[in-house]
Design a protein around this nucleic acid. Structure first.
Lengths: 137, 137
DNA sequence: ACTAACCCTATCTATTTACTAGGATAATAT
DNA sequence: ATATTATCCTAGTAAATAGATAGGGTTAGT
């Protein structure tokens, strides 16, 4: 299940992608427009910035803005920053790999092979979807 | 992220699918072979049975067994029983649909359309994978 | 200086997850 | 009948995670 953090994060970054120029948008504005708790959104935007997806400006006229053009940001990136691993089990994760304690052999594990397929397909979708795609709807 | 319940449940049902005949296998046997806590496994097998995937027999010589042939049980079914919705958000779930409080219009929601694609692809994989596929590895 | 806006850490509460306890029930063997 | 074997079933509990919230700190404009 997708966390609210991820859901709100996507909505927020897509909101920024919809802006015509890259002038900063205030947290309060996004909070109102997308009906997201201001404080929660604040922490979400902070992690998006710390992970290189957003830029920010302080003081009057400040806010958040995209660092790249919407068509240059794919959802695999966004998902990894917000939700963490795309795979459903750590043992098939490309970026967050962890071994299973209980699994004697990954190559013969039924769960492993099935979840590998799911990961490949999901990743393909996320990689091929950019913020521009989502903003134009 | 896949819950342990689901992971263990898949391992257990695949273990049963690997049996040559459909004579009951005891919980304790599966627990040992697959390194799953006995009591936890007990509750998992119970839900699999209550949802029509397994049969059981009490008393000596009792245990759990598949009700259908492995090639007639697809993973979409298994996943829904163990993990619940296959979709990452309730608003794109086919079997567990729920509206989002905050979303004014599903048809223009970026999260919605993206997660719909993911659901379709994941579902396709689960539907097309049977226990027989997983048992033969 | 004042004010607007983000920065950052810590804390809190509710829910979910992962498991455990312990007896009830049913089938089989003797 | 009775003892044994094994599932049935409800309830409880500890740890982790999710979903916020609080409250001051810092920086950039005017």
């Amino acid at each position: 299940m997708l966390s609210k953090k991820t859901k709100y994060g996507i909505k927020a970054i897509v909101y920024l992608a919809k802006q015509e120029d890259r002038t900063p948008v205030q947290i309060a504005t996004i909070s109102k427009e997308e009906e997201i708790s201001l404080k929660f959104l604040e922490s979400i935007l902070l992690t998006l910035r710390k992970n290189g997806l957003l830029g920010s400006k302080k003081g009057k006229g400040g806010g958040y803005y995209l660092l790249k053009e919407p068509e240059d940001i794919n959802m695999a990136n966004v998902m990894r920053v917000l939700e963490g691993p795309i795979a459903m089990v750590p043992c098939v994760s490309l970026n967050f790999y962890e071994r299973c304690d209980d699994c004697p052999d990954e190559s013969t594990c039924a769960v492993h092979s099935l979840m590998e397929q799911v990961r490949d397909n999901t990743l393909e979708i996320f990689k091929n979807t950019t913020l521009a795609d989502l903003a134009n709807q």
